[in-house]
């Protein structure tokens, strides 16, 4: 039970911790403060609780595919706000001043939504133990270990990024956020496949022999890149398209921004 608790909690916490540490490391650049993050985390936890409480009802929606719909919508929204955030992060600092409020929302939105999704899963898992007759203690210890590992990784990444010069840090954060966003987008596609909204095709490849998805590295890559050992073709396509959209967004924004600057 300890191991299960660790894996479940760690998987969810790690995803949020990575996202938060990446966003927080450029937070000062945008003028975001600690209490903004605290507010985002708090509302995320509240939404997670509400989501978990209403999950039985939600699950029955749309011919028992409500869960997939809601989750994929959450994930697509995360992708969209992260993509917009990355694109706006490429503006010059002068223009960014006018966009601070928007960027703040784009930055906190993914945290709130990711926490809603992952938090509800943790809540349901732990809650089921307090209602069962199984020993709770290992689950509590496991949850502590899992969340501490996740938070520690997040804190170390945050401080590693903070110690980088701003220019380099921005580049790293943009790249990392882009792959994370695309990973989340491909998860959304996987959910739509599960709900039969999209037609399933055989997996494009099977790399589980080289890197199993349930191994520690596989889990870490899943959180960062959205790694899957047996991805569906649509997942790969959406991943690539998602990346291309962000890149072209950045290029267009830069071109447009520099043109505007010349006009002025």
């Amino acid at each position: 039970m300890l191991l299960t608790a660790i894996i479940i909690v760690l998987r969810e916490v790690l995803e949020i911790a990575l996202l938060t540490s990446l966003l927080a490391s450029v937070g000062k650049y945008i003028g975001i403060r600690f209490h903004h993050f605290a507010l985002a985390l708090l509302s995320g936890i509240t939404f997670a609780y509400l989501y978990a409480k209403n999950l039985p009802t939600i699950s029955e929606l749309f011919d028992y595919t409500g869960q997939e719909w809601i989750n994929s919508i959450l994930q697509i929204t995360i992708y969209v706000s992260l993509a917009c955030f990355i694109i706006l992060l490429c503006s010059n600092p002068h223009r960014m001043n006018n966009l601070k409020r928007l960027m703040m929302c784009l930055m906190l939105m993914p945290i709130v939504l990711a926490l809603t999704r992952e938090g509800s899963e943790i809540y349901i898992y732990i809650d089921s133990f307090f209602h069962g007759n199984r020993p709770v203690f290992p689950v509590v210890v496991g949850s502590i270990i899992g969340s501490c590992i996740g938070l520690s990784i997040g804190a170390l990444i945050y401080y590693a990024l903070i110690s980088c010069p701003l220019e380099k840090r921005l580049t790293i954060v943009k790249c990392a956020l882009a792959v994370t966003a695309c990973g989340i987008l491909s998860q959304a596609v996987s959910l739509l496949l599960q709900a039969d909204v999209l037609h399933s095709y055989p997996a494009l490849w099977n790399s589980s022999e080289y890197l199993a998805e349930d191994s520690a590295i596989g889990q870490l890559l899943y959180a960062i890149l959205g790694y899957e050992a047996t991805p569906a073709p649509q997942q790969v396509i959406v991943y690539v398209v998602g990346l291309l959209l962000i890149i072209s967004g950045v290029v267009i924004h830069k071109y447009y921004g520099s043109k505007r600057a010349i006009d002025v």
């Binding site: 039985p56 699950s59 869960q67 349901i124 496949l193 589980s208 050992a229 047996t230």
Partner: peptide, 25 residues
């Protein structure tokens, strides 16, 4: 209690709450 149906090989993951049913394609 709730359970989460999961398979890495099938790429499937879904929470099934206690005393309920659900569909996975």
């Amino acid at each position: 209690t709730a359970e989460e149906f999961e398979s890495y090989e099938l790429n499937r993951e879904k929470i099934i709450t206690g005393n309920s049913k659900s569909i996975i394609f």
